[in-house]
Amino acid sequence: MTASVPHVATEDRGDGRFLSQADCVALIKRANGYAVGGGGTELSIESSWTGNIRWARNAVLSSGDVRENDVWLTRIVRGARSSVVLNVVDDAAIHAAVRRAERFMAFQTEHYEITNRKLPDEPYAHPDIWSAPTYDLNAERLAESMQRLSRAAVSAGMLSAGYENAIFNTISAGMSRNTVSQAQGIARTVRRVMTTCHSPR
């Protein structure tokens, strides 16, 4: 049984800012391919891109562009579970993570009663909270946004401090057992603005 994974064009622009749904499914399969000793391999993946700008005293302090992954990899053999958490998703890293999880399995107790536990087979949620304009908030647009947001404070002779960020991520979870993959996940967009105004002293 193989879960159907609809391709969502708005989410996967191929610019590598964060893992797509297809990347996540492939990652689950790769992890399973490295597993030795039977059982299953569960992955929970959160892959994100964050663009942000931060200002105080009416001037930009810094802005950032951060790409990050959180991968929880769990090997389950006869009900014994062992997890490794990492943020690198290349082959060597995943291979090493599977080996470490299996190494730590030696310290676990087996629980046969949960041997056949499996995740529900669900399709990806459609990313209807996706916002293309937010995804296009690049360095220049964030700087312009900061100017707009602090304009009123500047006009009033006050000091503005603030922060704006845009976060895009894919959250996936899946289990592989031999060649069978199941995956579920959602892609989302978050845009957040926080500002403070205060007197010069």
């Binding site: 930009v60 302090l61 810094s62 802005s63 562009d65 997890s83 958490v85 990492l86 943020n87 360095a139």
Partner: peptide
């Protein structure tokens, strides 16, 4: 068991920072 790698570049131009 946790592992996190990171590489961060900070650039300075005309009194302002950029970071990736």
């Amino acid at each position: 068991d946790y592992e996190r790698l990171g590489v961060g570049v900070r650039a300075f131009i005309d009194g302002c920072w950029g970071f990736a």
